Deep mutational scan, measured.
Amino acid sequence: AVSDRLIGRKGVVMEAISPQNSALVKVDGETWRATSGTVLDVGEEVSVKAIEGVKLVVEKLE
């Protein structure tokens, strides 16, 4: 799938994300809905860990 190429890519949080709420991230110039197990604020850099349906699963870039 096209989205599989995004695993391992870096992105930027466009809307705050919490474990209860998905929000938008920008990866390679494209906007995607994403979820995370932690709270992520706007502007934080993230890494794509997986794809669940049409959502990216991201975590904060260390």
Rank of each mutant, 00 (worst) to 15 (best):
A1Y: 11
A1Q: 13
V2C: 13
V2D: 10
S3G: 10
S3R: 10
S3T: 11
S3K: 10
S3M: 14
R5N: 09
R5D: 09
R5F: 07
I7N: 04
I7W: 03
I7P: 05
I7S: 03
G8K: 03
R9M: 15
R9E: 07
K10N: 09
K10E: 07
K10C: 14
G11K: 00
G11I: 00
G11A: 06
V12C: 10
V12K: 05
V12H: 06
V13T: 04
V13H: 01
M14H: 04
M14A: 06
A16T: 11
A16S: 10
A16R: 12
I17W: 14
I17E: 15
I17G: 15
S18I: 06
P19S: 12
P19I: 09
Q20N: 13
N21P: 04
N21S: 11
S22A: 11
S22L: 13
S22F: 13
A23P: 07
A23N: 05
A23T: 07
V25Y: 00
V25S: 01
V25R: 00
K26L: 14
K26E: 11
K26C: 15
K26N: 10
V27L: 06
D28H: 04
D28Y: 03
D28C: 14
D28N: 07
G29S: 05
G29L: 04
G29I: 01
G29F: 03
G29V: 01
E30F: 10
E30K: 11
E30Q: 12
T31A: 07
T31I: 15
W32M: 04
W32T: 02
R33F: 14
R33W: 15
R33H: 13
R33E: 15
R33D: 09
R33M: 15
A34T: 06
A34V: 08
A34L: 01
A34H: 02
T35C: 13
T35I: 14
S36V: 04
S36Y: 05
G37D: 15
G37Q: 13
T38R: 06
T38K: 07
T38H: 11
T38P: 04
V39L: 11
V39T: 12
V39R: 12
V39I: 12
L40A: 03
L40Y: 03
L40H: 03
D41F: 15
D41M: 15
V42I: 10
V42T: 05
V42N: 02
V42R: 06
G43F: 03
G43I: 01
E44C: 12
E44R: 04
E45H: 11
V46Q: 02
V48L: 02
V48C: 02
V48G: 01
K49Q: 07
A50V: 03
A50K: 07
A50R: 10
A50T: 05
I51C: 04
I51T: 05
E52Q: 11
G53K: 03
V54Q: 14
V54I: 11
V54H: 14
K55I: 15
K55W: 15
K55D: 09
L56V: 06
V57M: 05
V58G: 01
V58N: 00
V58R: 00
V58P: 02
V58H: 00
E59D: 07
E59R: 02
E59M: 07
K60D: 02
L61W: 13
L61A: 08
L61H: 07
E62F: 11
E62D: 12
